[in-house]
Design a protein around this nucleic acid. Structure first.
Length: 579
DNA sequence: TAGCCTAGCGCC
DNA sequence: AAAGGGCGCTAGGCTA
């Protein structure tokens, strides 16, 4: 059963089951109660334009739904997928009231920057969606028609069941993103403050530089003989470094590291502290941590490959140093799990490369590659695999890739094919059917110019370089994008299992917000998740997380002989996990 | 003054 | 250790 849900012009909310008798409208204030009742009775798939319009208000009232179809996100996938048939009688155009997906570039073509010839093609100045700005308010009948259209497109695609899975997983991801925000990541303010004070010194008034940074700045100025130097100005710093005889072309730390000079060590230490202060210092704590919870703004489907993005808070780049502040509530535990070596395993399964799949059956894929005699050391195996997936051509990585190619020809052929497609300006597509964006018009212009008889050497070199650049993007896209699909299925499977635990457990009858009484997801980062759970349910949660990983492997790859082992820990603190 | 761009660096 | 892919965020510095 499905129920479309929309706001009416009168500001009320309308619900429609287009296949059954249900059609009602209600006051917005009654909505959560209505939805909760329908959810309990019929467990429908909720069809709405945008999960962000509905999930937060439902969650705010303590109501969760099991399934939805996010027309915006699914419409974006279908609109660009090469798996969706070009011909046929189904309308390909999205309705005007449907906004573009988050990774499709600007909504308004007029607002997009004009292609610049001088600047050359940038990798990511995407073509905006070929439509105007979203406008108008859809009725529930509009939503139902659009849902029919999307379902029909999926059914007519060259992989209907995969596409249905992708749309369901994408929609589940949108729900989970809203739930992660509502639940918040447990964050112990006092622990974070201790980390800051131990490295920076006590908090200073606004504008004041922490004591430890000031000491280091004094040392740097002394060693550079630049008593008035402002270390925060890259331009000034670079001049001072060169004046002191340090031959750097930038102030980047990997370049500084190469030089033996007494100013380098305190400068690197200063930069490390400056980064901590500006990215995750007291100001961040004040802004983002409220009532011992960090509530990130996740953007489901926010990147071209299907990985999530965030807007604000930097949840996808929490430095290791501050993760100590992620601490379970008293009587609760964290179940922290990540899929180890996910992308190389995905490549092995995707390419159906029997030799690489054999390596992917082991607990440590890199070690297995060494044991198979492909390369000499585990480190070489890692570098070679990453190089194959990312398109490395130079350095150790580029040197090792040919050895890998000999041992795993099918896997190598898959990523090489993806790279050639990208270099030629073609789209590539993940296992479940998400396609890469096309390169921007400026890219095509540069390619065309370089193929003219009168092209200059500079034009040809630039065109070749941008072609290879796009090829590296598409090479990586198929692996990263399919890995994101695995992760999304895993995440959704965990959510479903936690919901079942909640319903079956003795706590179900308890009152209060669901996030205060039952195991729930609190963090997701590409191939890693955290569940916050009452301590006595932690083992059951761990089992659920493992079961969901196995299920994700089966959903994507059937019986392909590749395993997706988890590194999993039941812990009180995120700091105690990993290296 | 607001908005845009780049450098730099954190994460996977 | 850096290199290849994907990101977000901040500060500084420039332009409109």
């Amino acid at each position: 059963m499905r129920i479309a849900i929309a706001t009416t012009s009168a500001g009320r909310v309308e619900l429609l089951d287009p296949d059954g008798g249900l059609h009602l409208d209600c006051d917005a204030a009654e909505l959560p109660e209505r939805v909760a009742r329908l959810e309990a009775e019929a467990a429908p798939r909720w069809v709405w334009r945008d999960t962000r319009e509905w999930a937060p208000r439902l969650l705010g009232a303590g109501v969760r739904v099991a399934r939805c179809h996010d027309l915006r996100l699914c419409g974006a996938i279908l609109a660009s997928s090469t798996a969706v048939a070009a011909g046929g009688s189904i309308v390909r155009e999205r309705p005007t009231w449907l906004p573009a997906g988050p990774a499709e570039g600007g909504l308004d073509p007029a607002a997009a920057p004009a292609p610049s010839v001088d600047r050359g093609p940038a990798l990511f100045d995407f073509e905006p969606a070929p439509r105007g700005k979203a406008h108008g308010s859809p009725s529930v009948a509009d939503l139902a028609r659009e849902h029919d259209r999307q379902v029909a497109l999926a059914a007519a695609s060259d992989r209907p069941s995969s596409m249905r899975l992708l749309l369901a997983a994408e929609s589940a991801g949108a729900l989970i993103a809203a739930e992660l925000h509502a639940a918040g990541l447990p964050w112990r303010r006092s622990v974070h403050e201790r980390v800051l004070e131990e490295s920076l010194g006590p908090r200073r008034p606004v504008g004041g530089k922490p004591a430890r940074m000031e000491e280091l700045a004094v040392a740097v100025r002394r060693e550079l003989e630049a008593p008035a130097l402002r270390l925060d100005s890259q331009a000034d710093l670079l001049r001072a470094l060169r004046a002191a005889g340090i031959g750097v072309d930038s102030t980047a730390k990997w370049e500084l590291r190469e030089h033996e000079h007494p100013a380098v060590a305190p400068l690197l230490a200063y930069k490390r502290l400056a980064r901590l202060l500006s990215a995750n210092g007291w100001a961040w704590l004040d802004e983002w941590v409220v009532d011992e919870r960090f509530r990130a703004d996740y953007v489901a489907g926010g990147t071209a490959t299907g990985r999530w993005a965030t807007s604000g808070g930097g949840a996808l780049q929490l430095p290791k140093a501050v993760r100590a502040a992620v601490v379970a509530d008293p009587g609760w535990s964290l179940v922290v799990a990540d899929a180890s070596q996910l992308e190389p395993r995905v490549l092995a399964a995707l390419a159906r490369d029997p030799a690489m799949a054999a390596a992917g059956r082991g607990r440590d894929m890199y070690r297995s590659i060494v044991d198979a005699g492909v390369v000499a050391t585990r480190d070489e195996a890692k570098v070679a695999l990453l190089g194959a997936m990312y398109g490395a051509t130079t350095g150790d990585s580029g040197r090792l890739v040919p050895q890998l190619a000999r041992a795993y020809p099918r896997a190598m052929a898959l990523v090489d094919r993806a790279a050639r497609d990208g270099e030629a300006g073609r789209q590539v597509t993940t296992l479940l059917g998400r396609s890469s964006p096309l390169p921007p018009p400026s890219w095509h212009v540069a390619q065309a110019a370089a193929s003219q008889p009168d092209a200059t050497a500079v034009e040809e070199r630039r065109a070749r370089s941008s072609a290879r650049e796009w090829g590296r993007f598409t090479r990586n896209f198929v692996v990263q994008g399919t890995a994101a699909e695995w992760a999304l299925c895993w995440l959704a499977g965990v959510r479903t299992r936690l919901a079942a635990m909640e319903a079956g457990g003795t706590r179900a009858a308890a009152s209060g917000p669901v996030f205060e009484r039952a195991p729930h997801l609190v963090y997701f980062l590409h191939d890693e998740l955290i569940v916050h759970t009452p301590a006595d349910q932690a083992d059951a949660v761990a089992d659920a997380v493992r079961a969901a990983a196995e299920e994700a492997g089966r959903l994507l790859f059937g019986d392909a002989p590749v395993e997706f082992p988890l590194d999993l820990a039941v812990t009180g603190s995120y700091a105690s996990v990993g290296a």
